[in-house]
Design a protein around this nucleic acid. Structure first.
Lengths: 242, 242
DNA sequence: CTGTCTAAAATGTCAGACAATTAAACGCAC
DNA sequence: GTGCGTTTAATTGTCTGACATTTTAGACAG
């Protein structure tokens, strides 16, 4: 591991970076054990507290896990899809909310990406995916469903569509776009007429995927994009007036 | 801020979570100052070291920044696009390498997403974007260019394509897919013939975008997808034999 | 009013101690 | 020798108190 020259930045940040680089570059393999905190403190010539702060930084990025006890220590952690999902969604959501991304931009990005999945999903979707979509459509049609629940179901529907493409990398990349949109979608009040239109389009999408008619799935998604955009605009106007 | 009941997990993790939730939920606004470390230690009834470890976790996620001095402290940080990019790329790269994602899956995901950008980019690309693409094509044609540099230029080209869509959310989501592929792409040895084919397709894409011919851009991207896949397969076979 | 000095507040770092946890080593009866 | 408690050592988690460093605000002299 490398040393730190006369640098005025945080020592804990430097140490975290050194270890992170070792992990990313492949110098350290999954489940390999790092030296103990005391050993690291000696190696870097800092106190144990400083090393601990560095390790906590790495733990926050899911790069290591720690175990107590005799054979314990810090171990390089395999980044799971679930961890990556969670991180990606958190980052995306914060990015949108903190930078005041407008509805139009987020919506456009989301549906552009989803349409990229449609051809693959149309070719590979399993009966399971179709069943999930149908179930969510059914849920969306239930009377008395709150707007928030409606949105939840919407996300679940689109997630099934994306997962249908059978490409975990694609699912991971899209999770951020779809879920980060949810706070913005939650600003919309869905009238019964709105819901009917959306449910109709969802049904058309599910039908198209079932028949492996990729073109029609794409067309329906395009319509859904346009419709969602108008709903979003109305909601933003209503909000501005208040 | 909330307290922590009888929980056997890390105190610093619990405290980090409490503060993180406060930030994400919007209870704390950008640039708002957190209580000082000593005050937090009192509030949570733990030592300052524990609070510091919690704060380092948040700093690792770019959620806060710290300042020393009299009016210093920890402040809620606005997550910038650049920070989010960097985080996303790191996570994506690690996810691919640690989970041994095969070339085909990553490649498919990357190009599917890129093709989603093509129509938008075709409509909105500026002369700047086109100039960047042309410049990278020129660079790719230079003799004696190392494989690694060729890949770098390839990434820059595709990045210009994506940025041409003029949607920062889309650019952000795609950055992960495109850049995370690079380690896999770097396994390929590009012969002069390979490069000629790729440069030809790049030129076709740039031409199509310039003429705002979205269909042809998509067709060229489809060909590039197929070609990259065959190159990847060959590289993987060669690697397996060794 | 201006420049300088000082004090206070805050983070960054260190050293040492103890608690809690865990697995391995040990010892002892059988 | 085998099986089963017990001890012991290693390691992380937490606490305490101290000092260093950085930065601002205010006091004070000119």
């Amino acid at each position: 591991m490398k040393i730190d020259p006369k640098n005025k930045t945080d020592l804990s940040a430097q140490i975290a970076k050194a270890i992170r680089d070792a992990i990313i570059s492949g110098d350290m393999n999954v489940d390999e054990r790092l030296p103990s905190e005391s050993e690291l403190a000696d190696q870097f010539d800092v106190s144990r507290s400083t090393v601990r702060e560095a390790l906590k930084r790495l733990a926050a990025q899911n790069l290591i896990r720690t175990q107590r006890g005799a054979t314990g220590g810090a171990f390089v952690r395999r980044l799971s899809y679930d961890d990556a999902y969670a991180q990606h969604i958190t980052t995306s959501t914060l990015l949108l909310s903190m930078n005041a991304v407008d509805f139009e931009t987020a919506c456009e990005a989301r549906f552009a990406l989803e349409r990229a999945c449609a051809p693959l999903s149309s070719a590979r979707r399993t009966p399971d995916h179709l069943a999930t979509m149908r179930a969510e459509i059914h849920r969306q049609a239930q009377p008395g469903l709150s707007d928030e629940r409606f949105c939840d179901s919407d996300v679940a529907f689109h997630r099934a569509l994306v997962d249908g493409a059978g490409n975990p990398v694609l699912s991971y990349q899209l999770a951020g776009a779809v879920e980060a949109m949810q706070p913005l979608m939650n600003m919309i009040t869905f009238t019964q007429r709105n819901r009917d239109v959306i449910i109709g389009l969802h049904t058309r999408i599910a039908d198209a995927l079932e028949m492996q008619n990729s073109a029609d799935a794409d067309a329906a998604l395009a319509e859904l994009t346009a419709y969602t955009l108008t709903l979003g605009e109305e909601a933003m106007e209503a909000r501005a007036k208040r």
